[in-house]
């Protein structure tokens, strides 16, 4: 082999390595990195408005709450994110439980609904509620008419024989939404009765999806008659694509999620993170959800409730025990019971 080709190879190898070194991570200075777990438009308008209000420049990444939790955990030795905004409350509580989030008492706490403050207390100060989404279901009104079934109004209606093969819900092993449903039934009916109900419901289920919002979309497209999901997920397709799907807030009462926000422990930009935290709890910031077609109920008592959102007066919220059902021991126990009695067919 000639020296020239050797030289060529070696310098090529060295150059390749040098090229790999390109793009070395830049440390943020006076900036803010937000992990956002609601839908992208909402994230984007929050970021824009915050930048306008404070002048802090924001880098935002949108991922689901489960993905963000996995990432925050994996990064805990050298945190890259500052604040985790949005997404269902359980992973936030879990992160708080594992000491991955920073304890912070915002001066805004006094202005929040009791359920948001309770979330803060359950998380020992490591998280706070920013919105509430009640569980419910949606039905496709065109299909219902075709099949000439009376409109359902309660959880109990879904186990009637005419809904055989017409109900869809996510698998509680993969989806927080479906787990909330399981925990809700346990709290409404008591555990034994709840599993009797789940068994009966199982006979009517056509598919356990992976993602929590998928049943609502399937109902909107007419792939299933009924989809069990959070009510705001049911409402969004009626507004974005005019889908024939009707939202139901069940008559027995229902559980809910508390969408949360946490400061990541060891955040590189702690001051900016706290600024975001306080700002995100103001009525001005909480208005932005409805403008982005997200109809959860905001946690600040002065924030206007979007007119499309399910009316809080129409929803019978149960006194959901997040401390018990959010804890990993109870969760594992319920899920393995569900697996044994319903999941394993």
């Amino acid at each position: 082999m000639t020296l020239i080709t050797r030289k060529f190879f070696n310098s090529a190898a060295v150059l390749a390595f040098a090229a790999l070194a390109f793009g070395s991570s830049a440390q943020a200075e006076g900036n803010l990195t937000v992990y956002c777990s609601v839908q992208e438009e909402w994230c984007q308008s929050m970021v824009n408005e915050f930048q306008k209000a404070t002048g802090i420049s924001v880098a935002m990444t949108r991922k689901s709450s489960g993905e963000t939790f996995a990432q925050v955990k994996a990064e805990s030795a050298n945190p890259k994110g500052d604040i985790w905004w949005g997404g269902t409350g359980d992973p936030h509580l879990q992160a708080a439980e594992e000491g991955l989030t920073e304890v912070y008492d915002s001066p805004m706490l006094a202005k929040l609904h009791p359920w948001a403050v309770k979330q803060h207390e359950t998380g020992k100060g490591g998280t706070v509620g920013i919105y509430l989404g009640a569980l419910g279901y949606g039905y496709n009104s065109e299909l219902l008419e075709q099949k000439k079934i009376a409109a359902p109004a309660c959880w109990a209606d879904l186990i009637k024989p005419e809904f055989k093969g017409e109900v869809q819900i996510a698998n509680p092993n993969s989806s927080g939404t479906a787990y909330t449903f399981l925990a809700t039934m346990v709290q409404i009916l008591g555990e034994e009765e709840a599993f009797v109900y789940m068994k009966a419901l199982d006979g009517n289920i056509n598919q356990y999806t992976k993602s929590g919002a998928a049943p609502a979309q399937a109902a909107a497209r007419g792939e299933t008659l009924v989809g069990i999901a959070f009510q705001h997920d049911v409402i969004t397709p009626t507004i974005t694509s005019n889908a024939p799907i009707k939202n139901v807030s069940p008559c027995e009462g229902t559980g809910f999620e508390v969408g949360s926000m946490s400061i990541i422990k060891g955040a590189p930009n702690m001051d900016s993170a706290k600024k975001w935290y306080d700002w995100a709890l103001t009525p001005e910031a909480q208005k932005l959800g409805a403008a982005s077609n997200s109809y959860q109920n905001p946690s600040n008592m002065e924030a206007p409730i979007p007119k499309e959102a399910p009316k809080m007066a129409d929803i019978k919220l149960i006194d959901y025990d997040f401390a018990r059902f959010g804890g990993s021991a109870e969760r594992k126990r319920l899920l393995s019971r569900w697996d044994a009695e319903i999941g394993a067919k």
Binding site: A59, T61, Q217
Partner: peptide
């Protein structure tokens, strides 16, 4: 890549998944 994308380096597929999640199929 869903865990590896960042604010500065976001990818098309991560964006598309986000749209699919909110039924914005268009």
């Amino acid at each position: 890549v869903i865990f590896l994308v960042s604010a500065k380096y976001n990818l098309a597929t991560a964006y598309i998944v986000g749209r699919v999640e909110v039924s914005d199929f268009g």
